[in-house]
Amino acid sequence: MTKIIPQSENSFVYSCTSQDQWGYEQFISEHILAFQISGETHIFHQQGFFVLKKNRILLAHKNQLAKTLKIPGSAKEYKAVSIILKAEDLKKIAAIYNVACDKKYSGKNNIILPSDNFLKSYFQSLIPYLEQPEIGSNGMIFSKISEAVELLLNINPEFKNFLFDFSEPHKINLENFMLNNFQYNTSIENFARLSGRSLASFKRDFSDVFTIPPAKWLKEKRLEEAYRLIHLENKKSSDIYLELGFENLSHFYTAFKKKYGVTPTESLTIKK
């Protein structure tokens, strides 16, 4: 079970589960500050993989693709709290405190923060908002977000470039980008944004590079990778369909059979 607090357009997110669970949203559109209360979050992102362990704090940058696997701890409990640091709130904070970034941010997208008693106490102070979301006003929510930003800047003043760089992604090599990121389950609009293009420009450039529409190419590429993993690495369909961007196992089976004429299991019995 994952509980989302519907306060101030989901500025606070509280997640809890008793079983391994993949996160469904794979495009991070806003900065996130997250505290792991119990269990672990395994995070697969564009630059690699890391584990957010119990009592650790993560600062994640916006405009990136990432997959999360929530794993309960020894007590079969997974709990995490996330603060969504939305651009609209950060722009207000920047104006109020006259803060501006010195340069375009080019550092790590995911930073595990050192142990900090102030931040841990801050997350403890959010418990009333999580348990009684109907009580908090928008002004109170904004005050807590401002407090989080102040604490981050106190830890490292250079985080102002992380937080207050409001520029959009720059245009990058489309072929390399898609070949490295086709397995993420996100929209064509998000792929366009991350490649530094408008949707129209993305579709036009995509057609020039790959000769077929993006949605069709993504489906074909994912199925080809699935075939390779099943036949060359002995992977099971149930273990790979999510990591390849398919929403559910039934969808994967249907798409696989439509392309190859047989189910993934049946394809193993066919001599190459």
Results as ranks from 00 to 15, higher is better:
residue 1 M to E: 15
residue 1 M to R: 11
residue 3 K to D: 11
residue 4 I to C: 07
residue 5 I to N: 15
residue 7 Q to R: 13
residue 8 S to V: 09
residue 10 N to F: 09
residue 12 F to V: 07
residue 14 Y to Q: 12
residue 15 S to L: 14
residue 17 T to S: 07
residue 21 Q to D: 02
residue 30 E to C: 03
residue 32 I to S: 03
residue 36 Q to F: 03
residue 36 Q to D: 01
residue 39 G to Y: 03
residue 40 E to Q: 12
residue 44 F to L: 10
residue 53 K to H: 13
residue 53 K to P: 05
residue 55 N to D: 14
residue 63 N to H: 09
residue 68 T to L: 14
residue 75 A to W: 10
residue 83 I to V: 13
residue 84 I to N: 11
residue 85 L to K: 07
residue 87 A to L: 08
residue 88 E to I: 10
residue 89 D to A: 13
residue 93 I to M: 04
residue 95 A to F: 06
residue 95 A to N: 03
residue 97 Y to A: 01
residue 100 A to Q: 06
residue 100 A to S: 12
residue 101 C to L: 04
residue 106 S to Q: 15
residue 108 K to D: 15
residue 110 N to T: 02
residue 119 L to R: 05
residue 119 L to T: 04
residue 125 S to V: 04
residue 131 E to L: 06
residue 132 Q to M: 04
residue 136 G to T: 14
residue 137 S to A: 10
residue 141 I to L: 10
residue 146 S to Y: 06
residue 146 S to R: 07
residue 147 E to S: 12
residue 151 L to G: 10
residue 155 I to H: 07
residue 157 P to L: 09
residue 163 L to V: 09
residue 165 D to G: 09
residue 165 D to Y: 07
residue 167 S to G: 15
residue 171 K to E: 03
residue 172 I to K: 15
residue 178 M to D: 00
residue 182 F to W: 06
residue 184 Y to H: 04
residue 184 Y to W: 06
residue 187 S to W: 00
residue 189 E to T: 05
residue 190 N to P: 01
residue 190 N to K: 13
residue 193 R to S: 00
residue 197 R to K: 11
residue 199 L to V: 12
residue 201 S to P: 04
residue 203 K to E: 11
residue 220 E to H: 10
residue 221 K to V: 05
residue 230 I to G: 03
residue 230 I to L: 13
residue 232 L to C: 09
residue 236 K to V: 09
residue 239 D to T: 05
residue 240 I to K: 05
residue 244 L to W: 03
residue 244 L to T: 06
residue 246 F to G: 04
residue 247 E to T: 05
residue 248 N to Q: 08
residue 250 S to P: 01
residue 252 F to G: 04
residue 260 Y to K: 03
residue 263 T to K: 04
residue 265 T to V: 09
residue 267 S to H: 11
residue 268 L to A: 02
residue 269 T to H: 07
residue 270 I to L: 13
residue 272 K to H: 03
